[in-house]
Structure formats: C-alpha cells, structure tokens
C-alpha cells in the first residue's frame, strides 16, 4: 500500500498528497502524522492538496480529524491548494470542513503558520495571545 510522505521543514511538517488515495491510505496518513508531530515537536502542519482532483466526504472528514488531532498535540494544521472545482463540489456536497484553516498555496500557508505560532520575544506576547484565541476557536 502507498504511503503519503511527510516532510519536515523547520518547525513545520509538509504533506503533499499527490495520488488518488484509497481510504486506507488516508487513515494511515492520519496515524503517521500524529506520530511525526510528537516525534519532531512540530508546531505546524501544512497539507497540500493541489494534487487531489476530488475531495469526498471521507477525505474531508479525515482532514478534519487530522486538524483536531494536531490541535490536541499543539500543532496548527493548514490545508492549502484546494482546486476551484473541488471547492465548488464541497460546497454543493454540504461539507464545510469545520475547524480547518485553509490557504491558497504553500507559501501563504507558511505565512499563516508563522503568524499564529508562539513568538520568541516576550514583548509580542499580548498580540499573539489574541491571535491564538482567534485561531483556536473555529
């Protein structure tokens, strides 16, 4: 069975889904990601779905679950690169991907992550607390 590779770039894990996934592959990814977040102490996960030509309710649910699991493990998940046709179909299907943050592409996703992860300098603390409360309550 294929496995979706997980790359580590700095404090961020990058997952680029390129294949038409079997349900089992999606579940495996969900499991693998949890383990990698703990092993690497990553603060952010970017899932690039540019390569997916459809997202059905199963994949949608898996993405939501991944986001929830990451949150519990103190990592923020951002789904990037959703194609227009996929987005239109998801709206029609009635799937809203609650609790998932999205960005147009990997670059924007990185920006979003760097804004919401904890700051190194304490003087920025106030502002980032605000940002955090905004991002953790869907």
């Amino acid at each position: 069975m294929d496995r979706v590779p997980i790359l580590k770039i700095g404090p961020v894990l990058l997952v680029s889904i390129q294949v038409d996934m079997q349900d089992q592959v999606a579940l495996q990814l969900q499991e693998d990601l949890g383990e990698r977040i703990v092993a690497t102490g990553a603060k952010g996960v970017i899932i690039d779905i540019t390569g997916l030509d459809i997202v059905d309710s199963f994949v949608g649910r898996t993405l939501s679950t991944i986001a929830s699991i990451s949150r519990v493990l103190d990592a923020e998940t951002i789904v990037v690169g959703m194609r227009p046709a996929v987005a239109i179909t998801l709206v029609e299907l009635g799937l809203s991907l609650n609790g998932i943050r999205t960005a147009l592409n990997v670059e924007r996703g990185m920006e979003l992550l760097s804004r919401s992860t904890e700051p190194d300098s304490p003087d920025e603390f106030d502002l980032d607390l605000d940002d955090l409360s905004e991002t953790t309550s869907p």
Partner: peptide
C-alpha cells in the same frame, strides 16, 4: 471540469 469533479465525487460517495 467542475461537472467532472461533481460526478466523480458523487460516484466516490456511492461506491463507498
């Protein structure tokens, strides 16, 4: 393209 995506998604749901 959008209609292709819609019908493939529907088929995926029903096949599952």
């Amino acid at each position: 393209l959008v209609d292709q995506t819609k019908v493939v998604t529907a088929a995926s749901e029903l096949a599952r």
